[in-house]
Structure formats: structure tokens, C-alpha cells
Design a protein around this nucleic acid. Sequence first.
DNA 1: CTCAGCTCCTGCGGGC
DNA 2: TGCCCGCAGGAGCTGA
Length: 294
Amino acid sequence: MPELPEVETVRRGLAPVMDGQQIVVAQARRPDLRFPFPDRFAERLTGARIERLDRRAKYLIAPLDTGEALIMHLGMSGRFTIADDETQKPLRALNQDGFAHARLTDPKHDHVVFAMQGGAVVTFNDPRRFGYMDLVSLGSLETCKHLAVLGPEPLSNAFSPAGLGEVLARKTAPIKAALLDQRVVAGLGNIYVCEALHRAQIHPASLSRELVDGQVVALVAAIKDVLTEAIAAGGSSLRDHAQANGAMGYFQHAFAVYGREGAPCRRAGCSGVIVRQVHSNRSTFYCDLCQLAT
DNA sequence: CTCAGCTCCTGCGGGC
DNA sequence: TGCCCGCAGGAGCTGA
């Protein structure tokens, strides 16, 4: 589900009730998500103060005053909700039209709960349990197994045409697979890779090392633009995915290719049709006319 | 080492 | 209405 823009949207939703606040009670309602929780997970969190809520790629990172950092990954179906500790009702369960909606999540998949000092109850719900949480020491945060392997943050200056071009020149994999590799660039997933390749007019099956310089320049710009626009729109809400405050992102309405199989290409002047192909069990959407193979 | 494919888990929507 | 099948935004692991 969540790629970088959705995780950033979640971070912005949670920050007001978590930044600088103590976790009065932490609770893990099962022994594991995708991986087992670390030893004494809830005990190590209870009483800790969250210095701030950060994001790296698709990870949420909460440095604590205990010398550790809480690392959280949403996997495919992970979601946070914010409720009031008295009523357990969502505090801000309003969509963008201002109408309250029914509870978005099934409570049987509420796996982790944080009761915050300020009265907010933050719940992590994850039906598929592909998400995970871990505690690592602050001193080795950058070198921990989760973060050490990550490539550059796509919206930072560390992600540049020169750098990407150098990496791609050594890869034989198709460009779509390369961009999904978090070691190449960290934070993209299936949707935004499809969207960025369309913007850059690059065929997803193009071989990474055969991209010319101009294509790499266009690709870096397309990635930065699509991510920036998606964050500004509050991420994408597919199916019933929503932000931490219950609001729905709306960038999905701006998709040029994702989920648009058979629809006309939205590029001005292009008469192509969006096609879908499956590679290694993942759907790839692209325009059969304006995205050129190398 | 790289790369393609499979896998974990549950829920939802479409087709019959 | 109800059942079955395919599909889902991640990413670690396996084996070639």
C-alpha cells in the first residue's frame, strides 16, 4: 500500500500527537507482525518519550529518550489511526467532504497501541501483517539492518542524475525492477515507478544500462515531481486506505497510468492506450505509444 | 554478485 | 445471495 508519499502523509498526521510526547502505555496484542517483536517490546516503549517522528524511505522512525529508536514499516496494509483515550472514537474521522465515516479498520487487526501523554491513542492496524516494528539503538540507527541498505532519499540532493546514471550503468535489470530496488533509490513502489516512467516517457522494460543521459535526467525529475505532487495531495487512497486522521488522499485521481488499463493516455497529443503487463507477479502499467523502449 | 520468481497474510471485488 | 478466483501499494528469501 504505502509508498513514500503515503508514509510521509502518515508521518505528518501522527506528528502532532506524538512529537515530544511520552508513551504512557504501549501494548502489543500479538507476538509478531511480519517478524517477531523484539524482546520486551512494549515494556521498552512504555514510559519512553518520542523526541520527534522522522521518515526515511518508507520507514517511520521515532527516536526515543531511552537511547533507542522505534522503527516502523507499514508493509502493504498497515495503517495508523488516532483516537481519544476516553471514547476510543476517532478524533478526526472526517473525510475531505466533512462527513464522519464508519470505522475504517477491523479492530481484530489492531496489533499495536500507544496511549500518548496528551490523551491520544494511536493504533496500528494491519490485516495482512506485512508491516513490522523494531527497536534499535540510536547510536547505530544509520547502520541498522533496516536502513543500512537503503539508497538515496529521492527528494534529497543525494538523488541526482549523475548518481542514478552511475548505478544504472552497472545493472542489466529492466528499469522498472531497478527503481523498485530500495538500494537504488529508497521509497518508490509499484505505483510511483509506473507513474514516473510514464512522465519520463521510458518503457518499463528498458534495460537499465541502456538508458541515455537525457533519459536519466528526465527520470530523476519525473520521480521528484510525482512524489512531490503526491505528498501535496495527501498521498493516494486506494481501496479504503486513508490517512491517520481518517481523511482520504486524492492523488490517485491524478494517476496517468496506474490502474488505467485500456484507458486513453493522458499525455497531451498522445493517442496511445494504457496497457497492463504482469512481471514477477507485479502489474506494470504504461502507454504503448509514448513510452519508448531503448 | 545479480536477477526472476515465490512467498508471507487477509480482504475485497468481479464473475458465475 | 453466495462461492471461488484473482488481485493488492512490500520486500526477504531462494535458486539459477
